[in-house]
Amino acid sequence: MINLVNIHRTFDGEKALDGLTLFVPRGTLMGIIGPGGCGKSTLCKVACGLIRPDIGAVVVDGVDLVRADRKKLLDVQRNCGVQFQNDALFEHMTVLANVEYPLRRLTDLGLGEVRARAMERVAMVGLSGFEDRYPNSLSGGQRRRVALARACVTDPLILICDDPTAGLDPVTSRRILDMIAGIRYQTGNTVIVVSSDVPGLLSVCERTALMWSGRIIEEGIPADFMRSERDEVKRFLDDARLPFGGNG
């Protein structure tokens, strides 16, 4: 369960989050959409304790990350897998080493088990045969898939994906969103996905929130969301080329 209450965050005088409030129930696949620069990436980093809000409370599984000491914060982060917008792959490591790394650092598994689990996740994202390649020899879509495999290899209770479909073609984008949905249904864990592929996201997520100027202005199940009467929602869905009033 993630509960963000009245979050404010400013960078160099610019408001990134402006009174954001969002509740993500345990085991929900929550999709976050919104125009560029509205604070979606900041929301992802606040939710996993990487950025401390100026004002507000961030409660993850009962722990307030703003007031938690370093040990408690690390405990929460251990149970939190994050796929970053820039993939954040370690360039000096192979694909397999990247995926193995969280298991080596965060679990007590033996080398054989670490290897087997990492191979399984690499296969799950469709990259069997790429284990010994380095990230700089992969395409954008392949890098995203490696980042997804790394983020979910420890079966984190919370998986946060920050725009995993950015810059990808529609087919690859849809494939990645399907993989994320598959992980959610296999594990039953909480997943937050930010994506610019609005139709794709609305088709896989259980709840959707629209961010606008640093706050959530609409939140609900995709079907209700599509029928919203708010001007901003209509305008955003129209810009995203979604037929307003459709079924997603």
């Binding site: 996993c48 690390l74 982060q77 994050v82 820039n86 993939d87 954040a88």
Partner: peptide, 11 residues
């Protein structure tokens, strides 16, 4: 490239 954030996320 957010690799430092990636490390923080791995505790």
């Amino acid at each position: 490239t957010e690799q430092v954030d990636g490390l923080r996320c791995l505790a």
